[in-house]
């Protein structure tokens, strides 16, 4: 089933604005020297972060990098061990009562009362939330269920839902109060492609209407596609941060090829390139890391042409987020 254009935008909001009507150049989330420890283990080791109102920010990282601890600290679930955190102008842990009505939180793992139906769960949640009264609770529930394709499950007990359906219900609860700031901790893990599309339709609709979105995900293509800015965490620290072009701009592109073993590949060094060589019995595999792909590719091709050298398995690839991620995961920060 495809989503019609009319339902692509988040249905509860009308018109573009930023969090609480705040100007887009104000800061929604900031952290300075944030540290979080579990006993003697320090999960977050001094991070600085700044997210503007209306921004879509992706926090990436390997398992155990400290993403969820950072998110839960920003959400106010746990106090920072040290450092300063500000969310919508307050301390998320201390000022929870005043901040929470403006937050939507989709935890990486949170459950339901299994014996309640989907509709009862939504109704309970709305009764606990300071949801705007632009629509009745029944309308809000009906629209949300329809948007996330859960209408047929309205009277089904939550324990009978599939993992993907539970995740969609999760999202519905996180967004039902029309939040100014939405935290999404791996929202699409375990979802089929259509459900992922629906999820992103809803989140993008909210973001377009001014909601600040902070996302963690293991799907790099989601961050590439939706995030205005991103950061990659490793070992409790932020290793890379910036817009996608900024992050990729610091990552070298790669030109690779193979030549016969008799070819003097050391000549490439004299052309201003910094190639890596991997000799095999009959050939040499060459990788050139390049910060100017077009120029360096031209240099390599001119060298090969001028010396009548055949380049086998020639490839030139732009820097990718996956490559940046791999490098960061190996502990080599940009």
């Amino acid at each position: 089933m495809t989503t019609s254009p009319s339902t692509r935008a988040f249905p509860f909001r009308h018109g573009h604005r930023t969090a609480g009507g705040a100007p887009a150049d104000t800061i929604a989330v900031s952290a300075e020297g944030l540290r979080c420890a579990y006993g003697s283990y320090e999960a977050v080791r001094g991070i600085d972060l700044s997210i503007r109102n209306g921004e879509f920010f992706a926090l990436l990282g390997t398992n155990g990098a400290g993403k969820t601890t950072t998110m839960e600290t920003l959400e106010g679930h746990r106090a920072a061990t040290s450092g300063r955190v500000s969310v919508l102008g307050g301390d998320p842990h201390r000022d929870r009562a005043s901040i929470r009505p403006r937050l939507g939180i989709m935890l990486q793992e949170a459950g339901f009362a299994d014996d309640l139906t989907v509709e009862e769960t939504c109704r309970l949640w709305l009764r606990l939330s300071a949801a705007p009264r632009s629509r009745s609770q029944a309308q809000t529930i009906a629209t949300g269920l329809e948007l996330l394709d859960l209408t047929a499950k309205a009277t089904t007990r939550v324990k009978m839902l599939s993992g993907g359906q539970r995740r969609r219900l999760d999202l519905l609860l996180a967004t039902a109060n029309e939040p100014d700031l939405l935290f999404l901790d791996e929202p699409t893990t375990g979802l089929d492609p259509e459900s992922r599309e629906r999820t992103w339709d809803l989140v993008q609709g909210l973001n377009d209407a001014g909601t600040t979105v902070v996302l963690t995900t293991h799907y790099l293509e989601e961050a590439e596609r939706y995030a205005d800015r991103l950061a990659i965490m490793h070992d409790g620290r932020i290793a890379v941060e910036g817009t996608l072009p900024e992050v990729l701009g610091r990552e070298p592109s790669v030109i690779s090829f193979e030549v016969e073993a008799s070819v003097d590949v050391l000549q490439l060094g004299g052309l201003g390139l910094s190639p890596d060589f991997t000799p095999t019995p009959h050939s040499t595999r060459v990788s050139v890391h390049s910060m100017d792909l077009q120029q360096d590719l031209w240099t390599v091709l001119s060298w090969a042409d001028g010396n009548r050298i055949r380049l086998d398995r020639l490839s030139a690839s732009e820097a990718s987020l996956a490559a940046v991620f791999r490098r960061v995961s190996n502990g080599d920060a940009a």
């Binding site: 009362a113 014996d115 009764r127 300071a130 949801a131």
Partner: peptide
Amino acid sequence: STLAPIPAATPHSPSAASRVTSIALMELRI
């Protein structure tokens, strides 16, 4: 950039008693 201030409390915020009642009724139902 500046920090966005926390606005006044949302006018339609349910009272603590109302929230306790909602959770309690849910628990009774279960």
